[in-house]
Amino acid sequence: MSVVEQYARAHIVTDTDVQVLDERGAIPVVLRYDPEADPQVVRMRLPGPHEWSLSRSLLEQGLRAPASSGDVRVWPCGRVQAVVEFHSAQGVSVVQFDTKALMRFLRRTYLAAAPVEREAELRR
């Protein structure tokens, strides 16, 4: 059971205190999944102290149609992009990703989770 970590580039769509932009106006984002810690949760870490947790199923649903749960909303933006919106006491962060990067990450999480899910079923 291995942790899945993938680096991606994203665009901040709203005002925020994230100041680490590359030459294309993108920010580095770390997508992380640990099937042993919680097989239903993925994490997105933006530069600085910005880390968000959301359900893996919400991320997957949001790539096809608007979906939300609590303080997180995900929706497709055209054919090749997706938007993730995070609400907190500090405000709202809206981040735009290439859908391919998120889909590649999700595929890797399902491969990593397969042994954990099989082991859990055997214990039942």
Rank of each mutant, 00 (worst) to 15 (best):
Arg104Gln: 10
Gly91Pro: 04
Ala37Tyr: 03
Arg56Pro: 00
Val94Lys: 05
Gln96Glu: 14
Gly62Glu: 11
Tyr33Gln: 03
Val83Gly: 02
Val83Gln: 06
Gly91Val: 09
Gly48Pro: 03
Pro35Thr: 15
Tyr110Asn: 06
Val42Asp: 03
Gly70Trp: 03
Leu63Ala: 15
Leu106Phe: 07
Val74Asp: 15
Tyr33Ile: 06
Val42Lys: 01
Leu106Pro: 00
Gly78Asn: 10
Arg64Ala: 15
Ser57Cys: 12
Val92His: 04
Ala89Gly: 12
Pro66Phe: 13
Ser57Phe: 10
Gln61Phe: 12
Glu51Trp: 00
Arg108Thr: 09
Met44Gln: 07
Arg56Ile: 02
Ala37Lys: 03
Val74Trp: 08
Gly78Ile: 10
Val94Tyr: 08
Val42Arg: 00
Gln40His: 05
Gln40Pro: 00
Val80His: 05
Val83Phe: 04
Ser69Leu: 12
Ser55Gly: 11
Arg43His: 08
Ser68Glu: 14
Pro49Glu: 09
Val74Glu: 12
His87Tyr: 05
Arg108Gln: 13
Val72Thr: 10
Arg79Met: 13
Ser93Val: 14
Glu60Asn: 05
Arg43Cys: 05
Ser53Gln: 03
Phe86Gln: 02
Ala112Lys: 01
Val84Lys: 03
Glu85Cys: 07
Gly91Asn: 07
Pro35Phe: 15
Ser55Pro: 05
Leu59Phe: 08
Pro76Ser: 10
Ser93Asp: 11
Ala112Pro: 00
Pro49Cys: 06
Ala112Asp: 01
Leu63Phe: 11
Ser93Trp: 08
Ser57Asp: 15
Pro49Ser: 06
Ser68Met: 14
Leu63His: 07
Ser88His: 04
Gln40Ser: 10
Tyr110His: 07
Pro35Val: 15
Leu111Thr: 07
Arg107Phe: 12
Arg64Glu: 15
Pro76Gln: 08
Leu102Ser: 06
